[in-house]
Design a protein around this nucleic acid. Sequence first.
DNA 1: TTGTATGCGTTATCAA
DNA 2: TTGATAACGCATACAA
Lengths: 335, 335
Amino acid sequence: MKKDINIKEVAKKAGVSIATVSRVFNNSGTVKESTRKKIEAVIEETGYYPNVLARELAEKKTHLIGLIVHSMIGEGIPRMINGVNEVLEEHDFNLLIACTNGNLQSELKHFEIFRSKRVEGILFATREFKEEHRELIKKIPIPVVVLLQRTEQEQISFVTFDNYTFAKDATKKLIALGHRKFAFIGGPPTSVNAMERQLGFCDALKENGLSMEVELSRNGDFTIEAGYQQMEEILAIQNEVTAVIAVNDGMAIGALNCLQDHEIGVPNDISVLGLDDTVLAKASRLKLSGVHYSYTNLGKQGANLLLKQMESEELLYEKIVMPYEIHLRESVSEC
Amino acid sequence: MKKDINIKEVAKKAGVSIATVSRVFNNSGTVKESTRKKIEAVIEETGYYPNVLARELAEKKTHLIGLIVHSMIGEGIPRMINGVNEVLEEHDFNLLIACTNGNLQSELKHFEIFRSKRVEGILFATREFKEEHRELIKKIPIPVVVLLQRTEQEQISFVTFDNYTFAKDATKKLIALGHRKFAFIGGPPTSVNAMERQLGFCDALKENGLSMEVELSRNGDFTIEAGYQQMEEILAIQNEVTAVIAVNDGMAIGALNCLQDHEIGVPNDISVLGLDDTVLAKASRLKLSGVHYSYTNLGKQGANLLLKQMESEELLYEKIVMPYEIHLRESVSEC
DNA sequence: TTGTATGCGTTATCAA
DNA sequence: TTGATAACGCATACAA
């Protein structure tokens, strides 16, 4: 453990000026080979490290990107962060991360913290994009890209999945397989993404002239237990249902487990599909059907878009919707 | 989007000196109420934000903690990060994260980057703690806490799980239930944690005077598929096994699925246990038995220890081993 | 090829 | 209660 040493001391030891030391460290300007060698020797000997803070202050660049997420838990976000990280690393940016647990005050606070830390760009993932976010982002002189959420008509960039469309598409696939009697297990009303999926599901039914009893559209809190519980209630209501769609894999697995406990055949009696794509889907004995989309790629796209905005002279906005695939596996069959 | 404004301009607009503006912003020194009001008005009007870079340069503090992880993927690490984040947020530290994919060069590089960024402490999670890490950490004048790995005799702090002991304990529990014929599905030899678990398993057998055929101790790459495959091969070798232990849940689930495909009753014919604790354990129809330990708490402990080291005047080392619980659920029974 | 001097935006020390 | 001014450690324009 040695104390940090600064450029002045290195210069003194090497018998040169700080400007020359700076040149050596940044490969800028021209330095005679012999003095370069001399300086490098001193650097090696002293273990000198430039104080990046000072450099950044002088250069007015921090090489810092801020990432605000509402949660770290789950499969998706970590993969997204991984994607972001991969792109940023290629461009020598460092990642400052804040986790807000979806708390609005915390989100706004971290925008301010990041701003005062002089991050050069901000990636923002929230559960619900609100008016307060909009106002703050418009006010801040830092490029922002919103992840996993739409910003609607605003002049604010985002990269997201098209929850509505893939939910609609997946439902249509089941309809094409002959299913007419559906049950739906949605998420809490506070989850914009879950609501979008639910809307997609409903519209698919509508467009095909189908309808369903209101009681067959239920809501859970994304857990396996909730899926089990809701499936139980669906079965109690009536037994003509031939397909169950859950907004996430956890609840789909819960439904699957419930059906097996009732000795109802999947997919022979009832097909099950989760509008999601997690390891759970592959872990169940009966491979769960679902929708596939890549959080990693979303993260990469987001980071790339942000970098592009940072480089751009004029203001720049882009709205990117990531592609998806529907995977019909063992839990689904014709009806 | 407005341009950032500095303290000098605020001072000019308010007709005071920059020192006074600084005082207002930091509630330091004493300022007359009327001038405070005046300055606050200008701050409000201009949307002034102090440049934290400059402040940090002057104060020689960055309020930054660096976290180096080998991977973001999986359940554990994100929870750990969440724990770290929670503690750091309470203490107004920001988190700089680097993901290295286990690459040694990348790990060392990020130590240097963090050092030059003047982080005040570093949390380091790697797959294998090597000589190079040791040397670098000893050289760097920044407190470091290693996570999820032991540093052995070194004067370097760590917080980890006791893989060896919980694996041994869990095995003993099965022995106590009457099991004598075991099969083991381990991880790749590069995973220190997996090897420690395997050692614990072996020692539990030894201490109870039990032995096993070498071919019944197998290795996989942690995936569900690998677990399935290895179980298949175990069954091909012989059929006296009454208990299978896998180093992680994924492979335990694979084994479970394999057994069900062979119509071998679990737990009546064979008990299955995973030395792990992920959502997978609760998702399987048959609740998988396993070991419970909290990554969140590990992250909190690590962050707290690091903060303690940072505050401490003299050098300080602590080695913390987190507690665990063994959960015997539906996949295990007496023999 | 090298050195000098200035600026980056703060905080902190003194003096007023 | 306030203001000037010197750090903080570096980059860089300009001069030598």
